[in-house]
Nucleic acid binder design. Structure first.
Lengths: 153, 153
DNA sequence: TCATATAATTAGAATAGTTCTAATTCCTTC
DNA sequence: GAAGGAATTAGAACTATTCTAATTATATGA
């Protein structure tokens, strides 16, 4: 049997690509991000991580999340004035922000769409990333929309 | 000659559509937004407005900007963890965020693009707005890139 | 193996941006 | 011109994030 899980391998690999170490804190933050596939804030990640590692500090959670973002293992999203949210989905996707429930949904992007959208850029603009954010309402989540919106995801 | 300028008419009209009053503060904030067509923060708007109306408060600037956003006279943009920026360009456009200079450029959208992008949404998603953000570098602004990046726009 | 250097973590202070509160002023309408 | 509601104001409060300085962990290489 393997001494490392698959996710640990991926983590180690991506980290060392950037000359960074794999640490217990980075591992647990990454694990927590993969477990519940929503869009938590740093505070929410902190709360989840604490049960597995009570000694971890909020500053470290910020550090780890920033590290994971910078080596491409997770993404960062911002909606309006809310706190930064983190996203473990690495497939090319857009975000749909449900204005009624506050929740966020990933929308898979068909291959080629990003490149196609990039063609609208005039000469001299070289985009390394394209982010697409939809805002609106959903018609399938009627049940959950009744709930008092405990938090976002 | 007209008793009101064109922009005041537009302001008055949009405001009263939402049951709101046109006030000197709202007028001056709107005017300032139209004068320099960049993407200022609330603080920057506050600074610009102060010369015309020294008694205005920062809270009022926030209030006015929110009001203008909610009646569709300006737009709001957020990049990463930076402060909210406000945009007077009402034509359908995307934003290009220059990672080297920190500046923001408006990118005109060809008609139909937004609708086309909306077609990727699965059943049940009803988007009232679509935001597109590019990030990357530009090759034409070599001169300004040398400057020590005093602020963003 | 041990010393050294560097990287990472930590707690808590500090900061920045924004919102809230309560009091005041300004309009609008009777 | 009085009453009621809307808008503004100053400053306090709040939240998210970053910074600082000290500590701990890890890797390297003598």
């Amino acid at each position: 049997m393997a001494t490392h899980t698959e996710f640990q391998e991926a983590l180690l690999h991506k980290l060392s690509d950037s000359g960074l170490r794999s640490t217990p804190q980075r591992e647990v933050v990454f694990k927590v991000m993969l477990q519940k596939r929503d869009h938590p804030t740093a505070d929410e990640v902190f709360a989840r991580v604490k049960s597995a590692m009570p000694s971890i500090s909020l500053a470290t959670v910020y550090n780890c999340l920033d590290t994971l973002v910078s080596c491409g293992l997770i993404r960062q999203v911002n909606f309006e004035r809310g706190p930064t949210r983190y996203c473990p989905n690495l497939h090319p996707h857009a975000h749909f922000h449900d204005l009624q429930t506050g929740s966020t949904h990933d929308i898979d992007l068909p291959p080629g769409l990003i490149d196609q959208v990039k063609t609208i850029l005039p000469e001299g603009y070289d985009a390394s990333s394209v982010e697409i954010i939809f805002r609106g309402k959903t018609s399938f989540a009627a049940a959950s929309a009744i709930l008092p919106a405990t938090g976002q995801n």
